[in-house]
Design a protein around this nucleic acid. Structure first.
Lengths: 197, 197
DNA sequence: TACGATGCGGACCCCAGAGTCCGTTTTCCG
DNA sequence: CGGAAAACGGACTCTGGGGTCCGCATCGTA
């Protein structure tokens, strides 16, 4: 655990850090968050220790990459927030991001992975908050069941993503189709929960 | 890899095997399929090697436990097959089994886990076949979208289960609610996939 | 009851991945 | 341009889980 201090870093250190992040981003996208640190270091053309000089822990590296990906996802959501009608915009975001996920296993992991690092938690929270806002608008417009929250969307959507990722599904059309099914589950049209408990 | 021969096994060997399976069933249910063999052995009150005498590989042990669980799931489905109306019966099965899953991480893993062992593959296939039959009936009765297959149900339902399991959700009501949402996604009511790809 | 086959379990090996150390190289400031 | 601080990277340790070995105990049959 090398401390991450605040004093100015040398040029080569910054360059190497960037290379590591780039390599990690590629590898995580291609093969998931399980890729080992040594392999990332090799891909970046640096030694393992160099990775640990920028990131105290593998989790920190993962977080750095995932935060980046979450940010672009959130940007897409926020763009949808200004659309005329929220519901179609929401569905479009889901479909589009599902296509992205078809080729990026890192984000999929990031949606649900159990990593408790402030930076990541914050990025996640901010993202869900944006999605919540979009859902709220869709609800107001009447296109959605009233009891659906961003959390519900997360469970259904992230879950489906995990299964598809696990099966190496890479056809964007398939991903879009499931995104549409998840959207269908949230539509306003009766079919309330049946019976007890 | 100790071979699993056919000659009659000693009484104590059978007893120990049963203990191991019982311990594994408990631990897998409580904490998922990641529980280590040493820990299972300890819980069963036997040595690690004893586990490997009955099961050539950890995967074989996992398979043995999961097959058992899948069988009870399948039995539930087949019972629903003789109901008057297939759709409500299907929803009921999903809700009920979701409650079961709330307390059993083993089955959840078994639904999607990548283990390629004949016995497990067979049990899974048989289970999905039963579910397919139930879906077919529901489709005939008109309660369901025509394009939904058992595979679709698997992606949505198993996915949602994985997320809930990962978050240690143990409130059966929550599980039932999501099962109902998945069911809603499959209902016949327009909302077809939007646009391209 | 005796004795061979069967089964037991603790000690052991192997591997892989996370994280650290230290002698050498690079940067950069005076 | 020279030297101290910063960074490098290969070699190292540590941990933990899967799977095996072998001397000892137990079973069950003649």
């Amino acid at each position: 655990m090398t401390a991450v201090e605040e004093r100015p870093r040398r040029a080569d250190a910054l360059r190497n850090r960037a290379r590591v992040v780039a390599a990690a981003t590629e590898l995580f996208a291609a093969r998931g968050l399980e890729v080992s640190v040594p392999e990332i270091a090799a891909r970046a053309g640096v030694g393992k220790a160099t990775v640990y000089r920028s990131f105290p822990t593998k989790e920190h590296l993962v977080a750095a990459v995932v935060v980046e990906r979450l940010a672009t996802f959130e940007a897409d959501i926020r763009a949808a927030l200004v659309a005329d009608e929220a519901w179609p915009a929401l569905v479009e975001v889901l479909c589009r991001q599902s296509e992205v996920l078809a080729a990026d296993r890192a984000l999929a992991g990031g949606l649900t992975q159990q990593i408790h690092l402030p930076a990541l938690e914050a990025a996640r929270a901010s993202m869900w908050e944006a999605l919540d806002a979009l859902l709220a608008r869709a609800r107001e417009e009447g296109g959605m069941r009233a009891d659906i929250t961003a959390g519900d969307l997360r469970v259904l959507w992230a879950g489906m993503c995990r299964v598809l990722v696990g099966e190496e599904e890479s056809d964007p059309a398939v991903w879009r189709r499931y995104a549409a099914l998840v959207a269908a589950a949230m539509r306003a049209d009766g079919t309330p929960a049946p019976s007890s408990a």
